[in-house]
């Protein structure tokens, strides 16, 4: 592990303002559209007992955070195609450090994205929730994106540059819709809810909701996301060794 490199790479990605803004522009636009429709009133989703506006804020925060995580795929594919990876392989940097740097960069960008969405909701739409609950919700979303950064790394490892874009779109849209990040699952057909439980984005959203409501079973989403993390990390390691052996 090389913390200096990891920190520098995260900082470099944060300096790329355009790609950071990209992660929260669409979620904020959607938040403003849906949020205004719901109003800041006290209407509550019976399934989660959270105000609709808060629930939407969490969905959009999760959506932006997930984008921050998944968009690491582009960073990796890009770095691979221009040969930056080869340059890095001439340094003591290990494969693990490289992967950690992408996860940390994803977390750094996601932190900004989540904060921006929550700030717009609180300041612009006057969503009602205590500061502590907002913090817990944001923290849940933030930690929850680790497996998404790993999915991005996997895409980055597998995909050729021309194939990365469609693969990203399919993964991203699939996870957004199935996980209930666009439209609350409680207003969708019940079979969608069953499908949702299979995808990590559902549990990301749950983690945010549980943070906001401050009660409920946090263990299940945490365990599901941890299982995804372990499985993806194993797949990435296997793939990395496979590539190295073939070189």
């Amino acid at each position: 592990m090389n913390p200096r490199y990891v920190a520098r790479d995260a900082l470099r990605q944060l300096r790329n303002v355009r790609s950071v803004v990209f992660t929260f522009v669409v979620p904020i636009a959607m938040l403003l559209i849906f949020g205004t429709a719901y109003g800041s009133g006290s209407a509550v989703d019976p399934a989660t007992r959270l105000p609709w506006l808060v629930e939407t804020t969490i969905q959009m925060g999760g959506y932006g955070a997930m984008m921050a995580g998944l968009s690491q795929a582009f960073a990796i594919v890009n770095e691979r195609s221009i040969g930056w990876n080869r340059q890095l392989r001439l340094t003591p940097l290990t494969g693990t450090s490289y992967l950690v740097s992408k996860v940390v960069a994803a977390l750094a960008v996601a932190a900004i994205s989540i904060t921006a969405v929550v700030l717009v909701s609180v300041l612009g739409l006057h969503a009602h929730l205590g500061a502590g609950a907002w913090f817990a919700a944001g923290l849940g979303l933030w930690i929850g994106i680790v497996p998404f950064a790993l999915i991005a790394i996997l895409i980055g490892q597998f995909a050729r540059p021309d194939f990365a874009q469609p693969l990203f779109m399919v993964t991203f849209l699939g996870l957004s819709i199935l996980g209930g990040l666009w439209v609350p699952l409680s207003i969708l057909p019940s079979w969608m809810g069953d499908v949702a439980r299979a995808v990590p984005s559902y549990w990301l959203n749950r983690l945010g909701q549980l943070g906001a409501s401050g009660s409920g079973d946090v263990l299940t989403p945490a365990l599901v996301l941890a299982a995804w993390t372990v499985a993806l990390a194993a797949l990435i390691t296997w793939r990395y060794r496979h590539d190295a052996a073939r070189a």
């Binding site: 470099r12 790329n16 890009n78 770095e79 221009i82 040969g83 930056w84 080869r86 340059q87 001439l90």
Partner: peptide
Amino acid sequence: LQGGALLPTT
């Protein structure tokens, strides 16, 4: 290296 390029936005 040949083609060992640097990141364009950096």
